[in-house]
Amino acid sequence: MTGDVVDLAQKFGGFSDHWRPRVAAQLNGQDVRLVKMQGVFPWHSHAEAEEMFLVWKGRFRVEFRDRVETLEPGQFIVVPRGVEHRTAADEEAEVMIFEPSEVINTGDAPTSDFTAPSGQTI
Rank of each mutant, 00 (worst) to 15 (best):
F60A: 03
V5T: 07
T87L: 09
L71G: 06
R81T: 05
W19S: 11
H44N: 08
L71K: 06
F15S: 05
L54H: 15
F60V: 04
R61W: 06
F60P: 01
V23R: 03
T87G: 15
V68E: 14
P80E: 13
F15R: 06
M37V: 15
P42M: 13
F76I: 00
G14P: 06
R86M: 09
G3A: 02
G14R: 02
A25K: 05
A88N: 02
G39W: 13
A24H: 10
P80G: 05
F41Q: 07
L27R: 12
W43Y: 10
H85K: 09
H18C: 13
L71A: 04
V35T: 09
E51K: 13
G14K: 05
S45L: 14
N28H: 12
V78A: 10
A49N: 05
H18I: 11
V32W: 13
G39D: 14
Q26K: 13
A89F: 08
V5E: 04
P80Q: 09
A25M: 05
V68S: 12
D4F: 03
F53Y: 12
R22M: 02
G14E: 09
W19Q: 10
G13I: 01
W56E: 12
F64M: 11
E72A: 14
R61K: 15
E69L: 12
E51W: 05
G29C: 11
F53L: 10
F53C: 02
T2Q: 06
P21R: 08
R20S: 13
R86T: 03
V35H: 00
R33T: 07
I77V: 15
A88I: 00
G82K: 07
H46C: 11
G13V: 05
A25I: 04
E91H: 12
E63I: 01
E69F: 02
R20C: 07
A88F: 00
K36G: 10
G29I: 08
M52C: 14
V23G: 03
D7C: 07
V79F: 09
D4E: 10
H46N: 12
E48T: 14
L71P: 12
G29S: 07
G3H: 05
V78T: 15
Q38K: 14
F12D: 09
G39R: 14
H44C: 08
D90Q: 15
F64Y: 15
V55C: 10
F12E: 10
G39N: 14
R61D: 04
E84Y: 07
G58V: 09
Q26I: 06
S45H: 13
D31L: 03
F64P: 11
